[in-house]
Simulated assay, not measured.
Amino acid sequence: MSTDHPPGLDLDRLRALLDRERPGLLDGPLSGRLIEGGRSNLTYAVSDGTARWVVRRPPLGHVLATAHDMRREHRVITALRPTPVPVPEPVLLCEDEEVTGAPFYVMEFVDGTPYRTAGQLAALGPGRTRAAVLGLVDTLVALHSVDPAAAGLADFGRPEGFLERQLDRWARQLASSHSRDLPGVDTLRASLARTLPRSPAPAVVHGDYRLDNVLIGGPDDGIRAVLDWEMSTLGDPLTDLGLLVMYSSTAVLAGSPVATTAHAPGHPAPAELVERYARLSGRDVSALAWYTAFAWFKLTVILEGIHYRHTLGRTVGGGFERIGELVPVFVEQGLSALREG
Rank of each mutant, 00 (worst) to 15 (best):
Y209C: 00
H74E: 03
A269R: 15
G8W: 10
A251E: 14
R71C: 01
T239Q: 04
R283T: 10
S177M: 13
L30V: 01
D240S: 08
Y105C: 00
R194G: 08
V316M: 12
S176I: 10
V137D: 14
R20Y: 12
V146T: 00
V205T: 05
A251Q: 09
I302K: 03
R276I: 10
G218S: 13
A264Q: 00
V316K: 04
T261R: 08
R172G: 07
G282T: 11
A271M: 11
D221M: 10
T117Y: 13
D284I: 14
S179I: 11
A45F: 11
A175I: 02
E98R: 15
V133L: 15
G184A: 08
V85S: 05
T261S: 13
P7I: 05
P6I: 06
A337P: 03
Q173T: 03
P257S: 10
D186V: 05
R165S: 08
A154E: 13
I223P: 05
E98W: 10
R72F: 13
R22M: 13
T78W: 03
P219G: 09
P268M: 09
S191W: 06
E164R: 14
G101T: 07
A151R: 02
D96S: 06
R283E: 14
R314L: 15
R165H: 06
D96M: 05
H178P: 04
G266R: 01
E95T: 05
A287Y: 12
P200G: 11
Y247S: 11
R309M: 08
L192W: 02
A16Q: 11
G125C: 04
G38D: 03
A123S: 14
V245G: 03
F156S: 06
W229K: 01
L167Q: 09
L299H: 02
L182N: 06
D168R: 15
D208S: 05
D168N: 12
E89A: 15
V205N: 07
G38C: 04
A293T: 03
L338Y: 11
R314N: 15
L227K: 04
L92N: 04
R81I: 04
S232G: 07
S177F: 15
A118F: 08
G38Y: 07
L211Y: 09
L136A: 08
G217E: 09
L215V: 05
L17M: 09
F162H: 12
A251H: 10
D208W: 02
D138S: 10
Q120S: 09
S2N: 13
L64H: 14
I302Y: 02
A278K: 08
A271I: 07
R52P: 02
T195F: 12
M246Q: 10
S145H: 12
A175D: 15
G32T: 00
T250W: 00
S286Y: 14
G125K: 01
R57T: 06
W53D: 05
A225H: 10
G319M: 05
R56Y: 09
L338V: 04
L17D: 09
L326V: 09
